[in-house]
Design a protein around this nucleic acid. Structure first.
Lengths: 133, 133
DNA sequence: TTCAAATAGGACTATATTAGTCCAAATTAG
DNA sequence: CTAATTTGGACTAATATAGTCCTATTTGAA
């Protein structure tokens, strides 16, 4: 199945929420309650987005998150990569995977699959979060 | 992660193999050995393709499979649907899923996700197996 | 008529991925 | 000091994917 993970789904909802609450800090609790997203999971996602410099965070009481980039500067492709890891539609295309797919020799479809991969990548690279808010 | 399942990967390899062995029956064992695909799994896939009228089969000894459609008549989208089930990039878009996603009210991104879904669908609907053989 | 090679298909197990939870620490405004 | 908050590691649960096992059925040929 070809799916957008919950992480990315929640991230999109959170980014929308935060970007619409401009100029004030938004807490994870607030988003979690309002959007019915599991708090702990959401926290992880926001932390990640903070580490990736998409969000700014303020710790402590009265803390919260705010945008660090404009929504049209955040690419869906990058969001997916940071939350779900590498985007490889087939194992043999995963660069990490110490390659050497055991089917290497017998695999007859690598080249067209690679092309398909590129097309999907481009689809995601051409979308920014502004398309979702 | 966005992935093509092994089932689809194996199906593509098998269809390529069969379509290149024209005019003779190809056995599951033959493909399995030659392409290093688990026999039982491949069998299931070929049976499915037969039931979906993409392949023809002959039972009994000297039996095997042959193509029932031209490769350019088989759409990647359909192949994926029949082997992996519905292609829905997010739960809320799955028609089966008795809909009523519990986030329904709070979900703020359904419309752009739907658009993305359509784009991905079109990508797969515009590819036929002939692109892979 | 028996045997072997093949498809057919149900039921099951194993593995990997994704989703979600729990807990404790650090930070900071009041 | 305390409560609200981010931070982050470790864990569990749920789901999906991949693979295996077993038995039945079909059919050509010895």
């Amino acid at each position: 199945m070809i799916r957008i993970s919950k992480k990315v789904e929640y991230a999109l909802m959170a980014l929308k929420f935060i970007s619409e609450s401009d100029n004030r800090l938004v807490t994870a609790r607030e988003i979690s309650d309002s959007k019915k997203i599991p708090y702990d999971l959401l926290s992880k996602i926001l932390q990640k987005l903070k580490n990736e410099e998409i969000l700014l965070s303020n710790q402590g009481s009265n803390g919260g998150y705010s945008m660090n980039k404009r929504t049209d500067e955040i690419y869906l492709y990058n969001l997916m990569s940071m939350l779900d890891g590498e985007i490889a539609i087939a194992d043999c295309l995963a660069e990490s995977k110490d390659k050497d797919c055991c089917l290497e020799d017998s695999c007859s479809i690598k080249s067209p699959i690679t092309k398909l991969q590129k097309e999907i990548e481009n689809l995601f690279k051409n979308k920014t979060i502004s398309d979702f808010v």
